[in-house]
Design a protein around this nucleic acid. Structure first.
Length: 254
DNA sequence: ATGGCTTCATAGTGAAGA
C-alpha cells in the first residue's frame, strides 16, 4: 500500500503534475494540501477519468485539502470537532481499512504574530482529535504539510532558523505530543540521505542549492509502522516547469 | 539587503506562504 502527501500550492495550476504523478506512481491514497479552490471548481472529472476517487474540502484562495484514492473512501469526515475552524485544513477517510487523516497545519507566519498563536491552539486541537481518532480506529496514518521541522537535521540552516517559526520549541513540542499518542515518523524508520527536505523557497534558487526544510510528514500508528517498507521524497515534480514548492512524500507499506 | 518567488484576487498592487 502506498500512502502519499503532497502540498500542491494550487490544484488548479498543478493539476497536470498531479495527474501525471498519479499515473506514474499509482498510490493507494494521495493526500493533497493547499488546493486554493472552491469545491465547485474541484477537478473531479479529470481525477475520475484516470481511475481515482476523491473527497475534498476546499475554499476560495487559501487552504483546502483532499484525499484521492483507488478504493472508495469510507466514513469521510471534514474538519475537527475539537477545533472549530473556518479554514479548511482537515479531511479524513478510511481507505482499505486504514484511517487516513490529511492535514494542512497553519504556517504561523512568525512567532510574534497572531497566526502563530492560532497555530499553537490548532495543534492543541489536533492532538485531541488524533487521540480520539486513534481510540476509534486501530490503524491511523496522519499525512500532510505540518509546517514543522521536527529536528535541526530537517533544516538547511538550523542556526539561522533557531527559535523561528517552523522550528520553535513550542511547535516541536506539539509535534512530539502527536508522536506520544503512539505514532511514528515513518521517514525516520529508515536510513535516509542527509539534507533530505520536502519544501524549498521559490526565491534565491532554493531548490537548486538545496536550501530546504522537511516539513511534510507521514506519521503512522505502530501496527502500520511495523509494516512500513520504505519512505522516500520524490524530487522529480519539484524540477518540472511551474512546480509546487513542496515535494511528495511516499510511504510504502506491506 | 527584512528582499528574493509564486499564487490569488484584482485591474495596480497587496496578502500570504514558509
Amino acid at each position: 500500500m502506498k500512502l502519499v502527501t503532497w502540498n500542491v500550492n494550487s490544484l488548479n495550476v498543478r493539476l497536470p503534475h498531479v495527474i501525471d504523478w498519479l499515473k506514474a506512481h499509482q498510490p493507494d491514497a494521495l493526500c493533497l494540501q493547499e488546493l486554493k479552490l472552491e469545491d465547485i471548481k474541484f477537478p473531479l472529472a479529470a481525477i475520475e477519468e484516470i481511475g481515482y476517487n476523491a473527497v475534498f474540502e476546499g475554499q476560495k484562495t487559501y487552504n483546502g485539502v483532499a484525499i484521492l484514492s483507488r478504493s472508495r473512501p469510507e466514513d469521510v469526515s471534514k474538519g475537527m470537532i475539537e477545533f472549530a475552524d473556518e479554514q479548511k485544513r482537515v479531511i479524513a477517510a478510511t481507505i482499505d481499512g486504514v484511517r487516513v487523516v490529511c492535514v494542512y497545519i497553519p504556517n504561523g507566519q512568525s512567532i510574534d504574530s497572531d497566526k502563530y498563536q492560532y497555530k499553537l491552539k490548532w495543534l492543541d486541537g489536533l492532538a485531541q482529535y488524533m487521540a480520539r481518532t486513534i481510540q476509534e480506529y486501530s490503524d491511523v496514518a496522519l499525512l500532510g504539510d505540518y509546517n514543522i521541522a521536527p529536528d535541526d537535521r530537517d533544516v538547511y540552516d538550523p542556526k539561522a532558523w533557531e527559535g523561528q517559526v517552523l522550528c520553535s520549541d513550542a511547535e516541536r513540542a506539539a509535534y512530539q505530543r502527536i508522536l506520544a499518542l503512539g505514532m511514528q515518523d515513518s521517514f525516520r524508520l529508515f536510513d535516509q540521505p542527509e539534507k533530505s527536505y520536502t519544501w524549498w523557497d521559490y526565491r534565491m534558487n532554493g531548490f537548486k542549492r538545496n536550501l530546504g526544510m522537511r516539513i511534510d510528514h507521514v506519521l503512522l500508528t505502530s501496527g502500520l509502522a511495523a509494516n512500513c517498507m520504505e519512505v522516500s521524497i520524490d524530487l522529480a515534480p519539484r524540477k518540472l516547469e511551474r512546480p509546487s514548492d513542496h515535494a511528495p512524500v511516499m510511504a510504502t507499506l506491506r
